[in-house]
Design a protein around this nucleic acid. Sequence first.
DNA 1: TGTACATCAGTGAACGCGCGTTCACTGATGTAC
DNA 2: TGTACATCAGTGAACGCGCGTTCACTGATGTAC
Lengths: 210, 210
Amino acid sequence: MTKRRPLTVTALLDAAMGLFAEQGYGATSIPEICARAGLTKGAFYSNFATKDALFLALLDRSWERRAEWIRRAMPAGGEQAGASEERTRLPELVVDRQWTLVSTEFSLHAIRHPEVAKLLVEHELRVRSELAILVAGALERAGRIPTIPVDELARMIVAVSEGSDIQALTDTAAGAVVHSGLGPRAVTGLLGHFSVPAASVIAPDGSLSQ
Amino acid sequence: MTKRRPLTVTALLDAAMGLFAEQGYGATSIPEICARAGLTKGAFYSNFATKDALFLALLDRSWERRAEWIRRAMPAGGEQAGASEERTRLPELVVDRQWTLVSTEFSLHAIRHPEVAKLLVEHELRVRSELAILVAGALERAGRIPTIPVDELARMIVAVSEGSDIQALTDTAAGAVVHSGLGPRAVTGLLGHFSVPAASVIAPDGSLSQ
DNA sequence: TGTACATCAGTGAACGCGCGTTCACTGATGTAC
DNA sequence: TGTACATCAGTGAACGCGCGTTCACTGATGTAC
């Protein structure tokens, strides 16, 4: 019984992820999830108290995967040597349709349920601190230093990335040819605007650095 | 009968707007909308074929209001005279909780329904062209010219604004003290990065402008 | 290793409820004279 | 202006259906000897 349970949970989470992405959270019923997972409704209630609990478990799993993904993209090391513009480019975040749809819906859900919002904010804090390390590394390699806290830069980057992802998916759905570089270019722009060449900075002791 | 109908429609749209914002589109039932509007279900079916049709009508109304809002914010004229940073600041878009929730949900809905996505993209094209005029005006007053098409700048601004709005609402729901200036500062950053002082530009005939 | 037993994850039938949708009706709004 | 009539927006009762949830059960998984 210790082997069967996780398989059932995985099947339910997989089915839910697909359905939430296709139809939305509110429009998906518990029987639908069970049917797609090839299980009965009893199996659902044996593992989750409510659809909300399933949603949280689903996000937890997705967050873990995503965190691992960012961690892997992390150091890579200074193989770059192009123009300053080029060097501030972060590893491009893959626009994952399912993830974008489900996580955006979760943000709305969180805004409507303060106790869920606390979980989300806590999670985003962790993600942002990992992203801030990426940002700091990219700027350092480009020989620039930030003029605002890197955490604020990370916030702006997350905001513009999410907004661009939604825009891109909408355009794609409408059948338009998509301008996929927009998000990354905006990110590069923000990094450029909110940093200055290290050479131009005056160190605390009054001397010019570098 | 020419007087009663619009009142009924308005009551239904108002009720739906409130409920969609509070609970989400998928989680709101037709009977709930009717109850809040103080009408029977028959009144609903007498005016709309489906909940989807009501949603479209609701957005149409909201779009019209929003367009009017932008148009009003438009020219205002050069009363600014601060630093260059200051002068590129656009009239701050009020973060309207209801509108942010409902329109974000509509974007997700559109991504899932191509025929709806076409409507949304068409609408956004119009909004963006109005915004592009605002952007062009702000840059001109600041004595700068854009280095990328203003429409692309407008796209980036919309993306970062929407992302920041969601972030701000999530933080607020979680009870955090909100950093409301983040979106506008990112917008200013994008405007600054993707433009140069007019004085530094070489005109087509080879002379230096200004 | 093999057998006898205990556990409990998942089954499937059952329930009451609120959903979306229909339709004969009623009474307020507008028209003709 | 006043009355008699026509229209049709909104009412409210009715329907079948799928929802969320419960629970006695079964049979696969793990344990003890």
